[in-house]
Nucleic acid binder design. Structure first.
Lengths: 193, 193
DNA sequence: TCAGTTCTGTATCGTCCGGTATGAAACTAG
DNA sequence: CTAGTTTCATACCGGACGATACAGAACTGA
């Protein structure tokens, strides 16, 4: 029972590099050469470690959700409905228009990978999005401070719609400060303090 | 001075077919074979009539704006700020989640075509979006009924953010009815009647 | 030392990509 | 009918795509 030749790269950092490329260029806009170049490995190593382009994307998406996108789950623990929404919106702005990371949202981006060969990546992104929206709805359903006349499911969908819109605006060049103004107006009209 | 062999296809119809393909599959997800197949013409005819893939996309985007997307300009003529917003949001829902057309928004979709070869298409989409947002801002700047405490530029950006979000939601499978509930909540909190 | 195993590097596979050369077909003007 | 012009249809271009075969290198256990 042997050990074999050891890996010359760290799969975790390689996956982080892959995530960064998918985030910046989208699933359809990213080639294997882009990936191997950024990951610092060659093709057979990529296939041995991550399967293929689709599986690598799914792994990168998981890492995106549990890394840069972790604020979304954490926000649900905030004590009030307003704070939950506030932290979600602010987190979305930081995620999609912050410094040091590509502009836009990997998940929103991947929803728009609708070419014939991109169905698996697209469906993985949609599944993530549905799960996030369902969690937000459940949070509102159990909220004693939900304002009267607010349907939990509709509010969750509206918040999700606004964060999606923020991601699109960030991807098309709006700055963090511009989006903060938008978020402030949305918050003060939707849930006056 | 001659006439030459007459065209065997109607360029307007062919452009509409191309628009439909770009709308459904995105710029990066659409190949020339997809286009020629849907347009019912062959490659040299496409190049002679429309230039190349990029130029064809820009022409299709123009048609999208002046056709299915014409509600956006028309909405600006509504008498009140609230009606302008109402018509924009309802038009966005109909455009992106209506029947008989692909789900999602061509312009929002194209913002996410961020591969190395898609820069021209992406920039054309962004230019369209900026022009639309600027027109909305000017409409609000000249509105006597703008509620106090509302910055015209920020309101325009927020409305645009919501319509962008609606497009993303539609692209990821939400129905027209679900989005109507979202729009109703957004409207009644943002601009109470 | 050497068989057994795993990874690396190169070179390549077949396919599809966007784009075009070429020649026949279909028209107009004389 | 012919010359000139434009479009159509086929067949093809070089290159990039995602994915892999293969051989040598680097390790473990005996």
């Amino acid at each position: 029972m042997p050990g074999g030749r050891p890996r010359a790269f760290d799969p975790d950092v390689a996956l982080d590099r892959a995530l960064e490329v998918f985030w910046r260029q989208g699933y359809e806009g990213t080639s294997l050469s882009d990936l191997t170049g950024a990951m610092g490995i060659n093709r057979p190593s990529l296939y041995a470690a991550f399967g293929n382009k689709e599986e690598l994307f799914v792994k990168a998406l998981d890492r995106y959700i549990s890394g840069p996108g972790a604020f979304a789950d954490e926000a649900l623990a905030a004590p009030t409905v307003r704070e939950v929404v506030e932290r979600l919106v602010e987190g979305a702005i930081e995620l999609t228009a912050g410094t040091g990371t590509p502009h836009g949202c990997l998940s929103v981006n991947s929803v728009h990978a609708c070419g014939p060969d991109s169905a698996p990546a697209r469906e993985a992104a949609i599944a993530c999005r549905m799960a996030g929206e369902a969690a937000l709805r459940r949070r509102f359903e159990e909220a004693p401070d939900l304002p009267p006349g607010f349907d939990p499911a509709v509010l969750a969908r509206l918040v999700h719609t606004v964060t999606d819109g923020i991601a699109v605006q960030a991807a098309s060049g709006h700055t963090r400060e511009e989006l903060r103004e938008v978020a402030a107006l949305a918050l003060r009209t939707l849930l006056p303090a």
